[in-house]
Design a protein around this nucleic acid. Structure first.
Lengths: 382, 382
DNA sequence: TTGAAAGCGGTACCAT
DNA sequence: ATGGTACCGCTTTCAA
């Protein structure tokens, strides 16, 4: 056990007396001291303290630790060593306050913003605006209704001109955007969310593992059907990779793990309720023994309506996505058996937070793919 | 639409030019401005600004807004009016920094700290220590192995002497503790977590709705069994209210909603794996057609081991609690079908955060019962 | 290359 | 009852 060079005010359980004791390094994790029955955040070392120890001014320490240049390499070395020994962590409040003059600016661009799902994501984004706003950052949000690469390109430029230090983007799947982002990532950190864009140099992606979530639904469908029956899979638009991956994951898992279940040919509803409605009606005409429907995209409402009209809502099991008010309603009234969530709130908050942390402290996320939880909801836990 | 008295620097999408425009109150929500395609945190008003507008000093404004007395009632009134008009919100960074001299102290007491589940809660508590520590607060944590009312009483006193401004506690279910907390809540805010103690004056409770989670499991069991079969329910210790409520909720829901399922008499394993193991072996001897087991307490490992030894793990469906490493392992190898989580991390972080918010800004939680999510996990989404 | 000093937004203490 | 001021920890600018 190595001693820390500093000691801390600390209270021991045994004698119940405040006393200065030595804290050993091996029981300190992320700044929290773990003792028997006792854990607390340790006293923090400040810039001024380090300056004092190094015999220089605060300004010099600041320049050294933040590699701002204009400091003797030897001195810088010494300062860094001292900072490390004392596990110096800049005080967030102090830093945030000082940054109030010219706040860190973070851009957020969201496409398809008017869909029910993205409205949930926007709640998370608003929360990030608010909370990061209180911590010396400014979050600039731009939304696009629908999918429009041209407009997204314009918004990227607009935000860059405003001087953002980082960009969070739900990218339109388009080569132009890919090109653009490749150039942007050379200058500032970029986090993709909701849908990824690998190979453009983004720092990380926040969103769901779509294939895994499709497989998860296959497992649930198997349970619902007791291992046998006919299942209809409805997906959205062939160009929407997320939706396609969900249905692929679902079908793949059914085929390999649950051979007792028969898959009808994949149908596409192009995210339209009316088309989904029609597909369900048509299918039930030719397959009166249909036992399950998996909807990987939008169109859930149309599916439920069709089943309701045909009086089949308790004979046909339904699994679909997104914890929107309409879907919640349909789970509660029994039309939907399982509803799958993808932690929309986290998809809204995390990207901005990640960029903030990176720009504020230099800390990168531990993983490149930050997969949001696959939330399983029934009428009992919504 | 009422105009705000202030206007803000703002960028319009249409002309792409930075300009001063009027922001209307009805599009401002929690300090975030919602415009067409644009949302951002608004410029904040400071104490100094208000002092200037009111023609007084910052000190006076501070005293007036925080009701510290020593200020002319008329002047105080005027200051408050101005603050309200400008939607003054104290800057968190500034406040946190000023508080660094004598930080807000928050006490946390956790019982049964060495159980696998509580270890997960402790991760959340550590996170709170760390993050609140960076925001001008100090979190003092005390843990108890097992359940010991006497020790908990001592720890409450210890923390009170240390000058905590709020207490988060997982209370031992004991009249002494109830008495003690009733006295504590008269002085400082108290948040209970994991297990509640109604009637002691606590500000709120953070934890699961145990009955609802039991019902949720009933719904899942019904799906697993396709509406029929014999089910064994194993609970822990009769004195543990949470575990009893889970089994009650489960059995109640099965009886009322799923009459096709037969419930065997409730068994108790006193949270011991060996006893759970024996119960399973015994039951399978007299009921070879057993189709499901619901474990509402600890003992899950014993159950899985018994089923494995008897080669019944894929004939008998198992639902149990807590996302511990051992249970995760058993879900992955197929011994457990559904694992139910109760957001242990939130149970660790939220109580301290709630107390911090209250002591820092005066904001109380919106609800008295903050129920953590009922998380449904299968081998596909762990 | 280095230091000194002026903030950032609050709080607290001391004069008046 | 009120104003002035030092200070919390860090950044930034300006002198030296």
């Amino acid at each position: 056990m190595r001693r820390l060079t500093a000691s801390f005010w600390f209270r021991t359980l045994a004698n119940s007396v405040i006393s200065v004791i030595i804290v050993y390094k091996n029981c300190v994790c992320r700044g929290v001291c773990h003792g028997t029955g006792v854990r607390m955040k340790l006293m923090a070392v400040t810039l001024a303290k380090i300056a004092e120890l190094a015999g220089v001014s605060r300004g010099t320490v600041d320049r050294a630790l933040n590699n701002r240049g204009r400091v003797d390499p030897q001195v810088a070395e010494r300062i860094k060593k001292i900072a490390k020994e004392h596990d110096y962590q800049p005080n967030r409040a102090g830093k945030a306050l000082a940054l109030a003059k010219n706040p860190i600016k973070i851009g957020v661009i969201l496409q398809s913003a008017s869909t029910a799902f993205m409205r949930l994501v926007l709640e998370g984004i608003d929360y990030a605006c608010e909370s990061l706003g209180e911590h010396g950052a400014q979050v600039l949000v731009r939304t696009i209704d629908g999918i429009d690469a041209e407009q997204e390109l314009r918004l990227i430029d607009e935000l860059l001109e405003l001087g953002i230090g980082g960009l969070a983007i739900a990218p339109v799947n388009d080569p132009q955007i890919h090109d653009k982002l490749t150039r942007v990532t050379a200058r500032i950190p970029v986090v993709t969310f909701n849908s990824d864009m690998p190979g453009c140099g983004r720092m990380c992606f926040v969103g769901q593992d779509t294939t895994a979530s499709g497989r998860c639904c296959a497992g649930l469908m198997n349970m619902l059907l007791g291992g046998k029956g006919k299942v209809l899979v409805i997906t959205g638009h062939p160009s929407n990779l997320s939706h396609m991956c969900r249905s692929e994951g679902f079908m793949e898992e059914i085929r390999t793990a649950f051979p007792g279940i028969e898959l009808l040919p994949l149908e596409k509803c192009y995210d339209r309720d009316e088309i989904a409605h029609e597909i369900v009606c048509d299918t039930l005409r030719s397959h009166t023994d249909l036992s399950g429907i998996f909807v990987s995209a939008n169109g859930q409402v149309g599916v439920c309506r069709a089943l309701g009209e045909l009086g089949m809502d308790d004979r046909v099991r339904v699994i679909c996505y997104d914890i929107t008010p309409q879907n919640v309603e349909n789970v509660k009234n029994g039309a939907i058996d399982f509803l799958i969530g993808q932690d929309s709130f986290a998809q809204g908050t995390r990207p901005a937070q990640i960029l903030y942390d990176y720009l504020f402290t230099g800390a990168k996320p531990k993983k490149e793919l930050l997969l949001t939880a696959i939330e399983i909801k029934t009428r009992y836990n919504l």
